[in-house]
Design a protein around this nucleic acid. Structure first.
Lengths: 216, 216, 216, 216
DNA sequence: TATGAATGAGACTTCATTCAT
DNA sequence: GATGAATGAAGTCTCATTCAT
């Protein structure tokens, strides 16, 4: 049952020429879109190739099979997410008011949802194959770890075990909410963003404001 | 891309004999489990028939095709959900302290997730085909409407438009959180339940306690 | 490198109805012919199905994949060969003049070549996949063992080790000759049969006539 | 199914430069090995090019297609064989004792089998495509003609028609035996060589010793 | 001339669905 | 009504071959 090595290299061939790189880029983009909108199984390799303006053969020159393509989409999305969050979690982030940071995080998450098809693809194709769940799990766990770290500074009094649960709840709450949000149309999505921020603020306030009594 | 008529009735034949009714019941149960655990495409009609102890032919006597079977599972789950919530939203529910009701709702939702394979099937196969999303959407919207109704009583001062968003956020927050929770193992799931309740309480408290200043 | 269990059952489904049995029969026949005439790779599953008057789906109902179909052809041919030789190697075969038996063997072999497409398929597709070589190897080794056994009775003076080589040479000589023969057209094939018999006779005579001085 | 013109020249371009000639040489060698070990279909053009240290494009500069490459391998092998046999069938070969010559021939044949991958490639890929069979047929027929010529001198009394059959039997017997032999492991192969020689000797002795009564 | 990325026809295989028994 | 064998459309993937660089 053990999942095989993590070190499956996702790319069969690494493109060196400019044109190839662009082609690969397009394939990944189109694939992410397809996986996100139609689901893994419903997305057809031929259609992805066509949509990307290439031949099916070219797709398979980069990716050994459909799952490898999905994996590449997933990894690339995680890379992107990681970078996005790293930018917001610089050492001096702690000095900013926590409410501001929460808002920032929600907006960042929201941007991922809106702008990164790969993210939606990952979120939406979890239960299909164990293998893919790993990538997703890993991503959200990573977010949870980062959040946990912040909490450990903001609310040092909070018990370690509970802090972990709180971090999980915050991250997954936001993620789940956004999944729902994107399905609800742009208008309500925007309205929801503010409420999500408010919900997280109110949820965390009692513990995070314990030191310095800030208003909700 | 156009989805055909909406008004498909899911059942080809309504069973009259006792044995038939039991057979139909089993098929739906097995199918729900299969769709939930393996996803729509990975679930095979033959396997479902076999698992249900019938022949593939008999399944097709009840359901015109795989999608109809899924739709039946979805509808049946919604029926169940509706009943479950109706039990908790009796006219005198309003008289109970809202915190209690929130807890109750979360627990009810959780029970659906844990106990009703159809619910998980619905939640997990949304983006696959537009058609199925409807069923899901409808379900959550129904929950949201019910919540909205409650809010209109609990917090009459809240603006109608905002109330709608709040209801959506509450319902989808819980739903999303539970989706994540089931993936996280039984132990954390239990721990999360309490935090989810707490989060909703804190989120709603400022508005719902406006009338009668209750402590959080 | 170890070849997996021998016990792969070749048939996915064992036909019970008469019509199915006939269908399976036809598929095997057509497949044997195709493998023999065109080689394993060049033989196309679709073509086999069409030639057998069925659909590709029906072929796959019996055989999990192309190799399984080949294996079935091989096993069936070996069965046939075994039976054919068993009929000639009854206990009282020993009492017959050895020359007569040699002739009989050659004719039997020849009949296999002419009449059993599976035999030709087996002989002609050896180096393609190790897996298939096993079946072929086994068949010829079986013949060699039987021949070895006869030699042990006819020429008890012959050293065991040499006897083994002689048996191998006789069996493979005949087999190889017949392979060549079928390629040479019917007319020469017939003419060759007599010479093959003569060659084997002359080869074995010195040792087998040692006891009772029979003329060549 | 009809095979196109016979008169295809196998080489697209005749290399003039030294480096090209060496490249062509390597390609043919590698291809022979691949065809012999893996079979025609299993041998991949890309792999052959890579193994030969060139690009796939360069291979296609010499050979119009895969079959042309095979044909080239075949022809080159025949060239080699012809030369090898020509060396042994010099005018004064007749003066040597025929047994010696038979032994020599078997050894030469064996050397081809062991040392010349092209020979094995030819032998092992016969039934795949009619086209290739020709090359093989031609080769063995050439051997048979040479043998026939020798017989006409050694056994002038033998009827022409029978002589032809005898030559065919000798040549194909040796060839078939060697095919089998290489599959049987080095050790038995060595042991078989002696028996093959003995078999041919005994087969031919009665006719060839008719003039000068030599003992078998 | 050499390279190797791009192409796409074509092969295998699956599985939803039908229909004769 | 029940069964499950038969069907074939459709999808994934390979690899010979071409051609721009």
């Amino acid at each position: 049952m053990a999942r095989s090595l993590r070190a499956k290299k996702p790319l069969r061939r690494v493109p060196t020429q400019e044109r190839s790189r662009r082609r690969l880029e397009t394939i990944l983009q189109v694939a992410a879109e397809a996986f996100a909108n139609q689901g893994f199984d419903a997305a057809k390799m031929e259609a992805i190739a066509a949509e990307a303006g290439t031949s099916i053969g070219s797709v398979y020159q980069f990716f050994a099979n459909k799952r490898a393509l999905f994996r590449a989409v997933a990894e690339r999305c995680m890379e992107h997410s990681r970078k996005l969050f790293a930018e917001r979690l610089t050492p001096d982030a702690i000095t900013r008011p926590w409410r501001e940071l929460v808002d920032d995080m929600v907006d960042t998450f929201a941007k991922l949802h809106t702008g990164d098809a790969g993210f939606r693809a990952l979120i939406g194709n979890i239960q299909l194959y164990e293998e893919f769940a790993d990538a997703d799990q890993e991503l959200l766990e990573e977010f949870a770890r980062a959040t946990n770290h912040l909490l450990s500074i903001w609310a040092p009094a909070m018990e370690a075990q509970r802090r972990e649960v709180v971090a999980t709840v915050v991250v997954n709450g936001i993620a789940g909410l956004l999944v729902a949000g994107t399905r609800l149309g742009e208008k309500t999505f925007e309205a929801m963003l503010d409420e999500i921020k408010l919900m997280i603020r109110r949820y965390l306030a009692p513990e995070l404001d314990a030191l310095d009594a800030a208003p909700s």
